[in-house]
Amino acid sequence: MADRRQKRAPLEVDTSRPGTSRVYDFMLGGKDNYEADRRLALSVLEIAPGAPAAARANRDFLTRVVRFLAAEAGIRQFLDIGAGLPAQDNVHEVAQSAAPDSRVVYVDHDPIVLVHGRALLAVDDRTAVVEGDARDPDAIIDDPETRRLIDLGEPVGLLLLGVLHHLADHEDPAGTVARLMERLPSGSYLAVSHFHNPVDHPEASNQAYAAEKLFNEAFGTGRWRTREEILACFDGLELLEPGLVPLPEWRPGSGDRAKPGPAHHTLVGAVARKP
């Protein structure tokens, strides 16, 4: 905890307000977070004690998806939107361990993410960190760094992990995904993880509503969506088996750190291919 208290932020960062990437970092046991982030995280834990397990499940899902895309699907270029702070098994590390020529563009709008990401990746000419927001897909795709590494004539692995639930309904998350996928060629893949409201399970659904309210108070937007609402983000794409499932159920591996448990329902995810 001493390291966390001494953590200093870049001058342009307002550490009096929590940041989504930094709250996630806290849940993963990281040190790139501040007092406001920890206060919100502790409030979340009062509602959802399984939140750290859900965060680990999301990280494990990222690892399995990227390994599958690089090792089995032949994907050599990845666009990770809402990348968050660097952590164990980053996209470029997983992809390049399976296919050394893999190229990765990380996208985020959090100043701390951009500072840390650029420092980490400065020596790697096959990775880049781009400032951008999922709400403006064309700006991301047309950024010079994106175009330097991403060849739009070849399939792309698009990662939107833990991102779309931060968009309000009026921001049209399914439409955002559609606009991104329109810019990518056939044979590209989409991976999504999303906070889930299991409306058929009253206790879990009430927990989801309470967590959603807390996040809206902190960040202004956010929706824990139903299965049908999340599936709408995959319209026109070919869902891979096992479909949209709780994250620990998507092609589990022996190296997973998160196991099915009380937080099993919290996050769901899927991978789909553009025909």
Rank of each mutant, 00 (worst) to 15 (best):
M1L: 12
D3K: 14
Q6W: 07
K7D: 02
A9Y: 09
P10R: 02
L11N: 11
E12M: 09
D14N: 13
G19K: 08
G19W: 12
G19P: 02
R22H: 11
F26Y: 15
G29E: 12
K31C: 08
D32T: 12
E35C: 08
R39G: 05
L42E: 14
S43Y: 08
S43G: 12
E46T: 08
I47E: 01
A48Y: 10
P49R: 12
A55E: 00
A57W: 03
R59P: 02
F61R: 01
R67E: 14
R67C: 03
E72M: 09
L79V: 03
D80H: 05
G82H: 06
L85A: 05
L85C: 04
P86H: 04
A87K: 06
A87G: 09
A87F: 01
E93F: 11
V94A: 07
Q96F: 05
D101W: 13
V105P: 00
V107I: 05
D108H: 04
P111L: 01
V113R: 02
L114H: 08
H116A: 14
L120A: 15
L121Y: 04
A128H: 04
V129A: 11
E131Y: 09
G132L: 04
D133A: 07
D133Y: 00
I141T: 06
E145V: 00
R147A: 15
L152R: 13
L152A: 08
G153P: 06
E154T: 13
E154H: 14
P155G: 10
L158K: 00
L161Y: 02
L164C: 02
H166P: 08
H166K: 08
L167Q: 01
H170K: 06
H170A: 15
H170I: 10
P173N: 04
G175I: 06
T176I: 10
T176G: 02
E182V: 09
R183V: 11
L184A: 10
L184C: 06
G187A: 04
G187N: 11
S188Q: 08
V192T: 05
H194I: 09
V199Y: 06
P202H: 13
S205L: 03
S205Q: 11
A210S: 15
E212F: 07
K213Y: 01
E217I: 10
F219S: 09
T221H: 13
T221C: 12
R223F: 01
W224A: 13
W224C: 03
E229W: 11
I230N: 05
C233V: 15
G236R: 05
L240T: 05
P242Q: 11
G243Q: 04
L244K: 01
L244D: 07
V245T: 05
P246S: 10
P248L: 15
W250D: 02
R251W: 10
P252A: 14
D256I: 01
D256L: 09
R257K: 15
R257L: 15
A258M: 03
K259A: 14
K259S: 14
G261T: 10
P262Q: 12
A263K: 06
A263H: 00
V268M: 11
V268P: 09
G269H: 04
A272M: 07
A272R: 03
K274F: 09
K274H: 08
